[in-house]
């Protein structure tokens, strides 16, 4: 909840939220492990694992790190970071169309 909240009542409400988020994180962790035992095709497994991890990460950031009610300047800093992060994640994938001698790119999935 709001990091800027000061009243004891506000904090008590926040504590209830923290417990609900804790429960949600535990359930999502069990789902992540459960899905891995199904042995989905790699593309589906990667998609499901990353979606669940993103939901869990968002819960931690929004509630435990109080990002839900944060100042604009932090949102700007994080947006810039996300842009660079996505860029870095996609750059290596370009190599998939760039044949490496002795390997068969694109077949690992």
């Amino acid at each position: 909840m709001d990091a800027h909240a000061h009243s004891v009542d506000d904090i008590k409400k926040s504590v209830k939220t923290y417990m609900m988020v804790f429960g949600a994180l535990m359930v999502l962790t069990i789902i992540t492990v459960g899905v891995s035992y199904v042995h989905l095709p790699v593309v589906a497994a990667v998609t499901v694992a990353l979606i669940v991890a993103t939901i869990k990460g968002s819960l931690v950031a929004m509630f435990f790190m109080h990002l839900l009610h944060e100042r604009k300047v932090i949102y700007w800093v994080l947006m810039l970071t996300v842009v660079f992060f996505i860029f870095m994640m996609f750059v290596p994938l370009l190599t998939n169309s760039n044949k490496i001698p002795g390997t068969t790119p694109g077949t690992m999935w």
């Binding site: 992540t32 694992a49 931690v60």
Partner: peptide, 18 residues
């Protein structure tokens, strides 16, 4: 500390489950 937790949330499926 929450950031360290957040990193692990992504590490766990990427390294152990995929």
């Amino acid at each position: 500390w929450h950031f360290v937790d957040l990193v692990w949330i992504f590490l766990f499926p990427v390294l152990y489950l995929l």
